[in-house]
């Protein structure tokens, strides 16, 4: 069993985190789309934290002796998953930035060429 002390510490941390994320979404500093995985992770861990019997049952099922370890383990798995998703997103984003900048460079050159032609025609 988890002690009530660690239960409260974990619970408080999660609620603070949840409030911070919701607040950031409210102020449009965070996009809901990308914050969603964090919200789900926090709520999930919070539920387990509030209902230790459920937690105990699941951890026994998985063969984890101390239920608090299961919270840590789950949190760790979620974090890894989220970080990996970010790396994937980062790869895609950098590819898009590259394509965009290349398009900008080519267009700029085209515009300058056209302007020069126009100038030559008028003079």
């Amino acid at each position: 069993m988890m002690t009530i002390k660690i239960q409260i510490i974990i619970g408080v941390c999660l609620v603070i985190g949840l409030a911070a994320i919701v607040n950031m979404i409210r102020r449009r500093r965070l996009e809901l789309k990308y914050a969603l995985s964090w919200l789900i992770a926090i709520v999930f861990v919070l539920v387990l934290d509030c209902f230790p019997t459920l937690l105990t049952r699941i951890s026994r099922m998985l063969g984890i002796w101390a239920p608090v370890n299961m919270i840590f383990f789950l949190g760790f798995c979620f974090s890894l998953l989220i970080i990996f998703t970010l790396t994937v997103t980062l790869s895609r984003m950098s590819e898009r930035v590259r394509r965009l900048s290349q398009a900008v460079a080519l267009n700029e050159e085209k515009i300058e060429k056209l302007l020069k032609e126009k100038e030559e025609k008028t003079t």
């Binding site: 590259r98 900048s101 290349q102 460079a105």
Partner: peptide, 15 residues
């Protein structure tokens, strides 16, 4: 061709 952000040698050559 003027790249608006630094892309590194690969991105530049590809441009």
């Amino acid at each position: 061709l003027n790249l608006p952000v630094n892309l590194g040698i690969g991105g530049a050559v590809q441009t």
